[in-house]
Design a protein around this nucleic acid. Sequence first.
DNA 1: TTAGATGCAAAGTCTTTGCAATTTG
DNA 2: CAAATTGCAAAGACTTTGCATCTAA
Lengths: 152, 152
Amino acid sequence: MAEHYTDTQMLEMMAKHGWRITDQRRTLAQLFAESDAYLSPKDVYEYMKTKYPGVSFDTVYRNLRIMSEMGVLEQFYFLDGGLKFRGGCLTRHHHHVICTGCEKTLSLDYCPMEQSIELPDDFQVMNHRFEIYGLCRDCQSDSDAAREQSEG
Amino acid sequence: MAEHYTDTQMLEMMAKHGWRITDQRRTLAQLFAESDAYLSPKDVYEYMKTKYPGVSFDTVYRNLRIMSEMGVLEQFYFLDGGLKFRGGCLTRHHHHVICTGCEKTLSLDYCPMEQSIELPDDFQVMNHRFEIYGLCRDCQSDSDAAREQSEG
DNA sequence: TTAGATGCAAAGTCTTTGCAATTTG
DNA sequence: CAAATTGCAAAGACTTTGCATCTAA
């Protein structure tokens, strides 16, 4: 099941849209193809700096933006308003379960809009948003450990 | 059915929390008690300026923030990341149908979390988000009219 | 009277833009 | 080679903070 764009697919999309394939873009594609997590522009910038010491923030931004516009990345504002990106999904419409500890996500096939929801008269639905936030198993044990430590 | 805080209730809450009741706060309470719409800090500032010509942006911000922290306002990041506020809801847990034309909202009793959703093993749900975006009847006719005019 | 509220100014954060130098196709 | 990409610097938008003055309780 090919759920996300691979880095190759991302690069193909860029080429198809007339963008050039630079080293930085290759690295971005790899980063997002390999990770399930949501990354902030700053996260991405920090990562890019390890590979390209002279990289600039605005270039990272520009590339995140064009990749979002093509759909190979998903742009997402968290509950707190913070902007994040992650690799785009290829599968049919779905929603996400998001761990607020590690910000990894899992797909959910369930969509609330498939239920018969009583809407206001003549309301024309254009869009919807459904996300579940919480802690995955690993992050629960992390916070348990932290609590035990602080409580002595 | 008392769905939202009235302005009096908002002011009582402020007093209970040790905040002083100033003219500006009285006006903010009235504004949000009377409106169903989401307002951006700038919207609120513009409105306040009509009543208090010398009002400063930061005071509006400060008051929006303390009112949110008490729960008499709801703070909300839209799909585009923009910050908005509206009067807090008193009724039990529910979700919103939001018109992207006028940004008025309607409550929805339906909650997707009441369904049995298959979650990843041991995932501990902390929070969720569900909103439906679209156009209410009035805003549909507005855009129809605009379209006819431009196509006319 | 006095702790809290306000307006002003300035700083902070995050994001975008203009431009010359560099690199891709 | 031409056009796109990059890094730099600076500007923009939005939000927060410090402080002197003013005001509600």
